[in-house]
C-alpha cells in the first residue's frame, strides 16, 4: 500500500513539474525573498520603494491595467498619499452632457494611468515592440520573481560571436538572449524617501517585490488563512482518526 502511495506521489512530482522554460535562456539567479515560503510576507518598505521605481521608470512604457491607485492602501500608503499620487495624473472620462470626452484629475478609484492608449500606439512608440502589462508579470513567468530580478540586473555586453539585432539589447535571461527593452535601471534614477541607496540591484529587488505584490495582492491573507485552515484540518483529522478507531474497535 505504501508503495502505491509513494508511486502516486512520485508520479505527481514527475508529471506536474512545469515544462522546461524556454531552453535558450539562462536560469534565473535565485534570490531570497521576504514573500517566499508558507509564512512569507511582503516588506512594506520594499513595496513602497518598488512602487516609486515603477512610477518613475517602468510606467513610462508599461501599463498595469489590473491595478488602481486605491490598491496602494494595501502596501501602506495613507488615503491622503494615495489621493496625492492619483492627482498627479490626468485620465480620460466622459462623455459629458455635451457628448465630449474630457480629461480630469485621476481619483483613487481609477486604474493606474496607461502610458499608451492601446497596443498599436505602444508598438508604434517602441519600434514595434510591445511593453507588456506588468500587473501579472510575476505569475505569468516561470520562477517569476527571480526571473524579473535576473533580467533587470542581467544586461551586459554580448559574448564574442553573439550578434544582437538592431535596436536590440543582449540579456542572457531573456528567451533568445535579445530584448528590445534597453537596460531600464540606472543607479540613482530615483531617490528613495527612506534614504536607501538606489543601486541597480536595490531598485530591481524592490520593483520585483512590488510586482510580486501586484500579481498576488491576496498572498498574505491567503497564507495566513492557510496556516489556520491546515492546523484546523490536522486537529480534525486526528480526532476523526480517534473516532474511527473507537468505532472499529469491535470489528477487528
Amino acid at each position: 500500500m505504501r508503495r502505491m502511495i509513494l508511486a502516486a506521489a512520485a508520479a505527481l512530482t514527475l508529471v506536474a513539474g512545469p515544462a522546461l522554460a524556454a531552453g535558450e535562456a539562462e536560469h534565473p539567479r535565485q534570490q531570497k525573498w521576504s514573500f517566499d515560503g508558507p509564512f512569507g510576507t511582503f516588506d512594506r518598505g520594499a513595496l513602497q520603494r518598488g512602487f516609486l521605481v515603477y512610477k518613475e521608470v517602468c510606467s513610462s512604457c508599461h501599463a498595469m491595467q489590473q491595478k488602481a491607485y486605491r490598491h496602494l492602501a494595501n502596501i501602506g500608503f495613507s488615503e491622503e498619499e494615495i489621493r496625492a499620487i492619483a492627482a498627479g495624473y490626468k485620465v480620460m472620462d466622459g462623455p459629458n452632457d455635451e457628448g465630449e470626452m474630457f480629461e480630469r484629475t485621476a481619483r483613487a478609484s481609477d486604474r493606474f494611468k496607461r502610458p499608451f492608449a492601446n497596443e498599436k500606439a505602444a508598438r508604434a512608440a517602441n519600434n514595434g515592440a510591445y511593453p507588456v502589462d506588468l500587473s501579472l508579470i510575476v505569475k505569468a513567468r516561470h520562477d517569476g520573481a527571480n526571473y524579473l530580478y535576473s533580467l533587470l540586473t542581467g544586461y551586459k555586453a554580448p559574448p564574442p560571436g553573439k550578434t544582437v539585432g538592431e535596436g536590440m539589447h543582449y540579456n542572457p535571461y531573456f528567451p533568445g538572449g535579445q530584448i528590445a527593452m534597453g537596460a531600464p535601471l540606472n543607479a540613482d534614477a530615483v531617490t528613495f524617501a527612506d534614504n536607501t541607496p538606489a543601486t541597480v540591484e536595490q531598485m530591481a529587488k524592490d520593483v520585483t517585490s512590488f510586482l510580486a505584490w501586484a500579481a498576488e495582492p491576496e498572498m498574505e491573507s491567503r497564507k495566513r488563512m492557510g496556516v489556520q485552515v491546515m492546523l484546523f484540518l490536522i486537529v480534525l483529522s486526528g480526532m476523526l482518526y480517534a473516532v474511527k478507531r473507537k468505532v472499529w474497535a469491535d470489528v477487528h
Partner: peptide, 16 residues
C-alpha cells in the same frame, strides 16, 4: 470522514 479530512489537508496545501 477521516479520509476527507486527511485529503483536505493535502488539498489545502495546494490552495493556500
Amino acid at each position: 470522514m477521516f479520509g476527507f479530512a486527511v485529503f483536505f489537508v493535502f488539498f489545502a496545501a495546494f490552495v493556500f
